[in-house]
């Protein structure tokens, strides 16, 4: 789901809807807005996206997910399926100041909820 667009939503509200925990929270988290979503475990797919205010939904719990998100200027990374994160991942998040969330929901359900939240009514 690459193109759920048109409506932007505060990241905090998105996190609440996905029952997500915030694992790394930049100080400006309340100002973050989600306008686009990219859901994939393949970072190469992320790198071809040319949109702003992206939320990256992935099950890839590795440093590269954070680094890739930073490269494309994503708002935040949400790890689906409640995956455990290596500790280095949060260190990278802090270094690059990228918000990291985790939800127990599978990727498909995560996307379904995001789709409802961000689509034009």
């Amino acid at each position: 789901m690459n193109d759920a667009r048109s409506v932007c939503c505060p990241l905090i509200k998105v996190a609440r809807a996905l029952k997500a925990e915030i694992l790394y929270q930049p100080h400006h988290v309340s100002a973050l807005m989600v306008c686009n979503v990219t859901a994939t475990d393949l970072m190469s797919d992320v790198l071809v996206v040319d949109k702003d205010n992206i939320l990256l939904v992935t099950s890839l719990a590795s440093d590269q997910a954070i680094r890739t998100a930073h490269i494309i200027g994503a708002v935040a990374v949400i790890i689906a399926n409640g995956k455990n994160l290596p500790s280095s991942m949060l260190q990278v998040a802090e270094e690059l100041d990228i918000c990291v969330l985790r939800t127990q929901l599978p990727k498909f359900e995560t996307c379904a909820i995001l789709s409802r939240m961000l689509r034009i009514p």
Partner: peptide
């Protein structure tokens, strides 16, 4: 490498793009 999220064969074309 693909399990790490890379090696989809998009790297060079995307860099050129």
């Amino acid at each position: 490498i693909q399990s790490l999220g890379f090696g989809a064969g998009m790297g060079l074309p995307n860099a050129r793009r």
